[in-house]
Design a protein around this nucleic acid. Structure first.
Lengths: 250, 250
DNA sequence: TTGCTTTTGAACGTTTTTGATGGTATTGTT
DNA sequence: AACAATACCATCAAAAACGTTCAAAAGCAA
């Protein structure tokens, strides 16, 4: 019986029942108490489960967290598709900035098992990323209550220490004249700084954001590549040049 | 039958019926009266229910947020008392460093409605503080999975920008020879830096931490004032000078 | 094969959990 | 108020689970 086999059996049982007992595992897998304990300890180290007296229980995971989020969120399907599209632009060894906000949350599952370094200003994002073993740095600074985003001058000066290969930003308004805008000027400043330190910048925006202008300007339309679902060609397509638009297809 | 299984059954029953009887639980879970009583006592400690004669009833807790956090913690009562004692040392206009960890968590309610600035490396701490409108800065850096604490060199260099009037640290080991110690060297470094930048340093330690030595040294006994519950006078009082010890009373 | 690393199970003492016991407090009934 | 019945608490010893250590077994490269 290989270690790998035992581990996968344990995880399957966990998924099924949410809880496993050391004794049962010992018996079924036909190995010693020590081995089971070691297996559980290793899997705990990997964040796959939580040990309890006499066995282990399921770990709260990204997917479940996201499914909770879905209840309170709108346009989930669209956001997921946009995130899927965004994931295509991530390569091994990238250093990525992941903006706070709901749309970028759906990008997190795609970052699993990739050798990348992520920097984020979203608290929830950071926790989820760390849970799935993605190398993560959370920016410091003040906390914006509503969105659980880190903002402020401290944040920006800390951000100046990093260079990103790719930068994924959420946004509130997309307009042909005013570019990308967001309601909070401090958040806008963080987004802008992230963009400045990044080779490529992607904006993740669902349809509801188009043709809207919010308070604080982030960057110009042509500064970033927008990722979105299919647009109404007549209304919006002339906003963007060929190189600054990517559409998700169902 | 694992503790976890019993607990979850009890909570499910509670959710369903709002009330459980010890006798019924005993019978269904096939265990002794003592065990059930202990289960109920533990769940009460965690704020999950209120014990009544013959069983327990559902808890309609006032402060939902904190009670969720209590799940991960033991010795809740003692920690609360220590936190209450610590709160006495907070004045208006203080700038405070609040260390990550469960004990310091209970200090948070006491920081409400005070004109103070808090800096913390605990993610949960920061969120709770921000929720209750306390001015809060969350340090940036890497995330330690298990404790949701921010650690690393980035964190320390960011910490160097702040000066604190008071610094509240959690700890794992208190020993007369080796001083204050903790298992993670990176966490120890953060604690140490916070101490160095602070006029006064308080250590919050429950009884279980005494006479233990952990891996990484934080500071010497005499560098900080320890806050704890009543100590066994013979065993421990000679550890500390008069000025470095404060006891909580029930 | 030999030498090396990794994995395993057994053995140890320690910690946690458990059920039983005896004494005290609370409840409901008369 | 008196009583029995029941629930409660503190304490204790047995049992189960725990972590640590170590040597044997298995796997692997030279």
């Amino acid at each position: 019986m290989l270690t790998e086999e035992r581990h996968s059996y344990i995880l399957i049982q966990l998924k099924k029942y949410g809880l496993v007992k050391s004794q049962d595992l010992m018996q079924y897998l036909n190995c010693s108490e020590s081995t089971i304990r070691r297996d559980l300890a290793q899997l705990e180290e990997l964040g796959e489960l939580s040990r309890i007296h006499g066995g282990a229980k399921k770990n709260y995971h990204v997917d479940e967290e996201l499914s909770i989020l879905e209840k309170s969120s709108i346009n989930v399907q669209e956001k997921k598709e946009i995130a899927k599209l965004a994931a295509l632009f991530i390569k091994e060894n990238d250093t990525i900035f992941l903006d706070a906000g709901t749309t970028t949350l759906y990008l997190i599952p795609y970052l699993k098992n990739k050798n990348i370094q992520v920097v984020t200003n979203g608290i929830q994002h950071a926790v989820l990323l760390a849970d799935q073993q993605t190398k993560t740095i959370l920016l410091g600074g003040g906390i914006k209550l509503k969105t659980k985003a880190i903002i402020g001058t401290t944040t920006i000066s800390q951000l100046e220490n990093y260079r990103f290969t790719t930068c994924f930003l959420g946004i509130n308004g997309v307009d042909s004249e005013f570019g990308y805008t967001t309601p909070d000027s401090e958040e806008a400043a963080v987004k802008k700084q992230a963009h400045l330190n990044s080779s490529k910048t992607f904006i993740l925006a669902d349809k509801t954001k188009f043709n809207k202008v919010s308070f604080a300007k982030v960057i110009e339309l042509e500064d970033a590549i927008i990722l979105t679902q299919q647009l109404d060609p007549i209304l919006y397509k002339n906003y963007f040049s060929q190189t600054t638009i990517k559409e998700a297809t169902k």
